[in-house]
């Protein structure tokens, strides 16, 4: 079973700080979603609410059509793996897996064993004595083997070296194809994980600035370079993400589709139109801009 997610006008405040600012989106479910945002953009806060780690005070969060907070019909199907283990001192790897086995209805013990072997995790060691990477690997093991209808990995790769991260991505894809479910991943390593996502959501200072299919997003931005006045002409009416000028040459990054017509005209006028990769687009969309005063 795959579960969809519906977030309506969600706002979260911590004192004066607005961590999540009037965010709304709908995920149809059964896909791999990427949640991108800089540190402090509200990703973790948002994901915590999907997994009922905290009550929703303003707005609405629905998972499978129901509110997750204090509703174990939902929470037993939602597994959020955070970057840091929160098991108390003295808890061993085995203890964590025992609890997961009891509380996760779709838990797959054999799969967990296989992942433990793959990550070479010692079962008897206490969690606090595991290295950073081992703790991440344990989180990944719990997250995948829980086979939860909604599985969320919030930067669950810290301390893992590149080969192990790629093992994680391979496992995630393989298991997702075998048991389709809703997977949400937040990561800073956009170059590594961008192609895993079917849809991408970008948060910037608590606001949702983009929610698109990955392939759509890849064509959503463009960098237009050439003589300044021509560049301005072509990019008129589009959302300008950034601009740079050197002498008479200007390079403008825009968000939005440049019409075929305009593209043809631009090219014949000698302008260069390059597409913005996911990483570039992310950087532009979440850049510190001077607030208009």
């Amino acid at each position: 079973m795959t579960l969809g997610i519906d977030v309506r006008n969600l706002t979260v405040r911590f004192g004066d700080v607005v961590a999540v600012d009037d965010v709304s989106f709908t995920l149809s479910g059964g896909k791999i979603y990427g949640l991108l945002g800089r540190n402090g953009s509200g990703k973790t806060t948002l994901l915590s609410l999907l997994a009922a780690f905290a009550p929703v005070r303003q707005g609405k969060v629905l998972v499978g059509g129901a509110e997750p907070f204090e509703n174990s019909a939902v929470t037993e199907k939602v597994c959020l793996i955070r970057e840091r283990s929160i098991a108390p001192d003295g808890t061993t790897v085995k203890d964590i897996l025992n609890d997961a086995r009891v509380f996760r209805p779709a838990w797959d013990e054999k799969y967990a064993d296989r992942l433990l072997d793959m990550f070479q995790l010692p079962r008897k060691k206490t969690v606090s004595r595991l290295s950073r990477g081992q703790q991440s690997a344990l989180g990944i093991t719990v997250g995948l083997a829980s086979r939860a209808s909604v599985t969320i990995f919030d930067e669950s790769y810290l301390g893992l070296d590149a080969p192990t991260r790629y093992d994680f991505y391979d496992e995630l894809l393989r298991d997702y194809m075998e048991q389709p479910r809703t997977i949400i991943m937040s990561s800073h390593l956009i170059e590594e994980v961008g192609r895993l996502f079917e849809e991408v959501l970008i948060l910037d200072r608590g606001r949702l600035v983009s929610h698109e299919e990955t392939d759509t997003l890849l064509t959503a931005g463009a960098a237009v370079t050439g003589p300044a006045h021509l560049v301005d002409e072509v990019t008129q009416g589009l959302t300008v993400l950034s601009q740079q000028q050197l002498g008479g040459t200007k390079s403008t990054a825009v968000y939005g589709k440049i019409s075929e017509d305009a593209q043809a005209r631009a090219r014949s006028a000698g302008l260069e139109i390059g597409s913005l990769g996911l990483q570039d687009l992310f950087v532009h969309l979440t850049r510190e801009r001077e607030e208009p005063t």
Partner: peptide, 10 residues
């Protein structure tokens, strides 16, 4: 906190 992360309600 540990059990909430395993999907328990309070």
């Amino acid at each position: 906190p540990n059990y909430v992360s395993h999907g328990m309600t309070r």
